[in-house]
Simulated scan of single mutants.
Amino acid sequence: MKLSIGIPKTMKVAAMVQPWEDPLSGADVGKLMAVADKLGFYKCMLGEHFIIPKEHIELSGDWYFHTAVALGFFGGQTTNLRLSSSISILPLQNPIVQAKAWSTLDWLTGGRAEPIFGVGWLKEEFDMLGVPFSKRGAMADEYIAAMIELWTKDDPEFDGEFVKFKNCGFAPKPIQKPHMPIWFGGDAPAVQRRVAKFGNGWSPFRTPPETFPDCIDYIKSQPEYDGRHIDVFFALEMLNVGAHHEILDDPRAPGTADKQKILDQIGWLKELGITETIVPLPPGLTGEQAWIDRQHWVAEEIMPAI
């Protein structure tokens, strides 16, 4: 089991944010990621939205970064941490521009980029960006195929409904070959089929954990699945977040100082097929030093035991 880490002050979802994060500056958060890097955490992760309608701000907040830009900053503060979006909303940006952003990040950070793409859920955000919400699934399938073409071909060419290019050059390519690992986040069968066709990893959101084994079997049963290794990420904190960021108060979601409980939770996730997770923060942290102390404890007590 690989232990990753959420990046503080990169969103203000009411079900997850803690008050101690509010005073942090960008430099402060960069220093925290440098600590996580030295402690041996596997991957740092942050979410993405571009614009939030007012009726959703109470639960979702309006504080989000552009994932590739923010991860470039955190890549500059670290040496080994993998750099992951969770998630990047695939249909909301031109795929050529997205492909450039991710290959740039991968090249500049020595091959550490690892995007998790999703199709999005907030229709009003699509409307404000002029992207057809009803076509987001078809767009996502075409966009990722076009991005793979750009990342892997010396003479890229694509002729689709939403994307067309030929007689062009595209560099730098990603350092990771044949391209950086591609993850998809979400719960619908269409997402799982997308993982089977294109993906190296799946990040469920509202899928009941007890059904993970069946979902993984479904992914691997698809005709386009070619036997590649599929990683699966799930954080217990997500059990506290509803489909539209409602607060669910799931007792399994908060972090604890009980080492055995954490080990039992991680063991349960492993049995369900999860390969990567985050040890949840306990409620009521009091500041940066408390966060640092918690991550030292995880690195010293939990990492060696798993």
Rank of each mutant, 00 (worst) to 15 (best):
A99L: 08
F126Y: 13
P208C: 06
I96Q: 09
P172D: 01
V163A: 07
R112I: 09
K177C: 04
C168M: 15
R136W: 02
P178A: 05
I87F: 06
K123N: 07
E161Y: 11
R112W: 09
S86D: 09
G130R: 06
E157P: 09
E114M: 13
D141F: 13
P178H: 00
H179N: 02
T104N: 15
A138W: 11
G160T: 11
A196K: 09
G118V: 00
F165P: 01
P208D: 02
P208I: 01
T152N: 01
S86G: 13
G137S: 14
F158P: 09
I116A: 05
G110V: 05
I96R: 08
R206I: 15
S103F: 10
L105R: 10
P91W: 05
K173C: 03
I182Q: 01
M128L: 14
Y143V: 01
D187M: 02
L105K: 05
A101Q: 15
I182T: 00
I116E: 07
Q176M: 09
K164F: 10
N94V: 03
E124D: 15
W183G: 00
G185Y: 00
Q176K: 03
E142I: 03
A138C: 06
P204G: 08
E114D: 12
W102E: 11
L122I: 05
S203D: 12
M147G: 04
Q192M: 13
A146L: 08
A146Q: 06
I89N: 11
D141V: 07
F184P: 02
P172I: 00
R206Y: 11
I182P: 00
F126I: 04
P174K: 02
I144Y: 01
F184G: 00
A113M: 06
G186M: 00
P204R: 11
G160D: 08
D155C: 11
D187L: 03
K100M: 13
P95R: 04
W107N: 13
R112M: 08
K135T: 08
R206K: 15
V97P: 08
D127E: 15
S88G: 12
L150T: 05
A190K: 07
C168K: 06
P204W: 10
K100F: 13
G118R: 00
N200M: 12
I96A: 05
K123E: 15
W121P: 07
L92R: 07
F158I: 07
P156I: 04
V195S: 04
A113Y: 10
P174Y: 03
